[in-house]
Amino acid sequence: MKRFHVHAHVEDLQASVAFYEKLFGAAPTRLEADYAKWMLDDPRINFAISSRGGKPGVDHLGIQADTPEELAELKARARVADAALLDDGATTCCYAASDKHWVTDPQGIAWEQFQTLSDIPTFSASQAAAPQAASACCPTPSRGKPVGIAVKSNTSCC
Rank of each mutant, 00 (worst) to 15 (best):
I120A: 01
D119C: 03
W111D: 01
W111T: 03
D99I: 08
Q132K: 15
A125F: 10
I120W: 00
A133H: 03
F123Y: 14
C138G: 15
W102R: 05
I149S: 04
Q107N: 05
D99P: 01
A133V: 09
Y95R: 04
T140W: 11
W111I: 09
P146H: 06
L117C: 05
H101D: 02
V103D: 00
A133T: 07
K100M: 13
S118E: 05
A134Y: 09
A128V: 12
Q115P: 03
L117Q: 07
P121T: 09
S135I: 04
K100L: 14
A133N: 07
A110G: 12
I109W: 00
Q132M: 14
E112S: 04
G108D: 06
K145R: 15
S135K: 15
Q107H: 04
P139N: 07
R143A: 12
Q115F: 01
A129N: 05
E112R: 12
W102D: 01
A110H: 05
V147T: 09
I120P: 05
A130D: 03
F123S: 12
I120G: 01
A97P: 06
P106M: 02
V103E: 04
T116G: 08
P131G: 10
A125T: 12
V147Q: 09
Q132N: 12
A110S: 14
P146T: 07
V103A: 02
A129E: 06
C93R: 15
P131V: 15
P139W: 05
L117W: 01
P139H: 07
T122Y: 01
C93M: 13
A134E: 14
P141I: 02
F114W: 09
V147F: 09
A134I: 15
T140N: 14
S98Y: 13
I149M: 08
G108I: 14
S118N: 03
G148K: 14
I120H: 01
S98L: 15
A97Y: 07
I120S: 00
F114Q: 08
K145W: 12
S118C: 07
S126M: 10
L117T: 02
A128L: 06
P121I: 10
A134V: 15
A125Y: 08
R143C: 07
C137I: 11
R143F: 14
E112K: 10
W102Q: 02
S135T: 13
A130P: 00
D99W: 09
K145Q: 15
A130T: 07
T116C: 06
A96V: 13
A133R: 06
C94S: 15
I109A: 02
P121C: 06
